[in-house]
Design a protein around this nucleic acid. Structure first.
Lengths: 355, 355
DNA sequence: TTGCTTTCTGATAGCGCTACCAATTAGTCT
DNA sequence: AGACTAATTGGTAGCGCTATCAGAAAGCAA
């Protein structure tokens, strides 16, 4: 009865399995599993043994088997709405990359300007089919979605929300500080009349960025002229209008700080249309460092926000939460702050002499 | 010995399994599996029974189990390289949407300017881990990738390649005809001096678009001035340079037809910087109808290419091929032509009076 | 040392599906 | 009808991993 001969028949190409690691480390597969899942009830010495075997065999767990055995579906929804394409595509790239590595299934949902009731219904429905949700702006601000999902016990991660809210984990940068640094940069260049284009009012990040600007201006002894502050909505189109308004003034600003790159690009376009040189006649800076920043001419000085990495981290966090949920840990909300960076390029300079 | 009591303990929330379908249909799970995999050795009557049960239970196979059981993984790679973001994100949205509906796992790969040898190696490596590949431009033109993947018997679909090649299935629009229509449109507006900015020479679509332009010009009795044709590379930056060259001429064109929207946007930017009005002094038209087209001001008249739908169709085709491959059907290459559409917006008009 | 609790580790039994082969049935040919 | 082949169908055994619980080891008090 040559039953055991079969054993190997269906084996996949060359993948190392948990059993091989276990044998090499001289422990049971179960112990290896514990180590790879970061459970803490394994003795230090044993853990080291296993780690060593893992490294030597270059083992990485089979995600399909994992999700099958764990019985947790790893469908994860990302709900977007009217994003800047540049932002969305970076987000997608980051999330998708991670998802494919962890065998999570990313589901894309587009919820455009739903009424609260519709949003609530959609969230409830979604909660039945996914294990976790990633909320990029602007939906990351929606209390309706957050509460509905929380009620269904579905973990949620907000990306790039303006500030930490007690009930939702988030991955973000410090918008206030970043805006403050950019403002300081402009001031150090010698600008006094600095225009600001605010982001969409439905996002806390907008408020944070403006607060960073305002606070820093005031700290420098400059009470920002309200006429130099325009409401924008993160779209190119809104940037166009804001820029027109700003440059229509008798004494236009010598620098304009737009709350994102798309609007900054719009400012440049308007400036050019009016025969102004950037940065000779007008400095323009943006925020986010999406591809737009390096597409336009001149390239934008902006704040780098590592969107793809943030998406990656968000997925990571979510996966962990999903796992822990099973274990029953209460999983208190995390506030994962990423570092930003002021990227100096070609759209800013000292104010014109005659200003 | 209450062993069987456990049976249900670990079961997932509400997911329907193949067993339930089998029980309902009165057949064995194996038969259900055959039906869901489209195998042909199931009697018609039995198949109907199973289909009915599947529909009633709203069953959909668990992909993790499927791939674990040694079935082909439905991992599908999309290899991109330096795309326009607008294009990429639309592509991703379309593909991802379909992927999540069919439980396929989309894997993103970025291969930037690899040397042929490296490309060959990467393709070979990829072939071991995915069941199919989607190739958007510009990689859809790579014979290296196509041949390497063909050798490994991995189905490939090219998206938006310029023309059908006998050995690779593709999903595309008729670039020649679209460009021809756009040219005719410009001519009908009264333009005679029409500038053209070519796309990247490594893409057959570029050649097709140019051919459509040239042929139509000639058919109208206008031998296009070679000085009015500039080489571009589908990037905003290249559009900038091409536009400068075109508008530097003593008798600049009254209309510029750019081979994609990004370059058309660049043309508008340059025109504005030179104090020209669009479309008053210069008509500008693009190609693709990405978000860029409706972002810039004035909005671009362009050729609509249904990118998301094309990605959807590509995935569909690919999935079918993967399935058929198993059954052993030779699967001859398909050439799926989508309809394009000339979208008239605000960037074009009659030539200026004094031209 | 014994008796008992607290870690740590291992054995077993699946997760949902398909490969493989055996068994059954239908179909064909003398 | 009987013999034999081809077409369907079912049974069994995993795929690689983890949940669960039992057993072993370690820690600790008495």
């Amino acid at each position: 009865m040559p039953v055991t001969l079969r054993r190997t028949r269906r084996r996949r190409g060359s993948a190392v399995t948990i059993h091989e690691v276990a044998r090499k480390a001289g422990v049971s597969p179960m112990t290896v599993s514990r180590v790879t899942n970061g459970e803490d009830n394994v003795r230090e010495a044993t853990r080291d043994l296993v780690m060593k075997a893992i490294r030597e065999l270059n083992y990485s767990p089979n995600p399909a088997a994992r999700s099958l055995a764990g019985a947790q579906s790893t469908r994860i929804a990302m709900i977007y709405s009217n994003p800047s394409v540049a932002y969305l595509s970076e987000l997608l790239v980051g999330a998708l990359d991670k998802a494919s590595k962890t065998a999570a299934q990313l589901v894309l949902e587009k919820w455009d300007e739903l009424k609260p009731a519709a949003e609530r219904a959609a969230a409830r429905k979604l909660a039945q089919s996914v294990a976790g949700v990633i909320l990029p702006p602007p939906l990351c601000e929606s209390d309706v979605i957050a509460s509905e999902l929380a009620a269904a016990d579905i973990p949620v991660i907000a990306i790039a929300t303006g500030r930490f809210r007690a009930n939702v984990s988030c991955v973000r940068i410090d918008d206030f500080r970043a805006a403050s640094e950019m403002t300081a940069h402009l001031l150090s260049l010698g600008h006094q009349r600095i225009g600001f284009i605010k982001g969409h009012p439905n996002q806390t990040a907008s408020a944070q960025r403006f607060a960073g600007f305002e606070t820093t201006m005031e700290a420098a002894g400059l009470t920002p002229n309200p006429a130099y502050v325009q409401q924008g909505y993160f779209t190119y189109r809104s940037g166009l209008e804001a820029a027109e308004a700003l440059l229509d003034r008798k004494r236009p600003p010598t620098a304009i700080f737009a709350s994102n790159d798309d609007m900054a690009a719009a400012v440049i376009s308007v400036a050019h249309r009016r025969g102004m040189d950037v940065p000779g006649d007008l400095s323009v800076v943006g925020f986010d460092d999406t591809v737009t920043a390096t597409t336009v001419w001149p390239e934008l000085t902006t704040i780098r926000q590592p969107i793809a990495a943030m998406a990656d981290a968000a997925l990571n966090l979510l996966l962990r939460k999903i796992r822990h949920k099973k274990v029953g840990e209460p999983a208190e909300p995390v506030d994962h702050l990423f570092a930003h960076e002021l990227v100096k390029r070609a759209s800013d300079g000292p104010p014109p002499k005659d200003a």
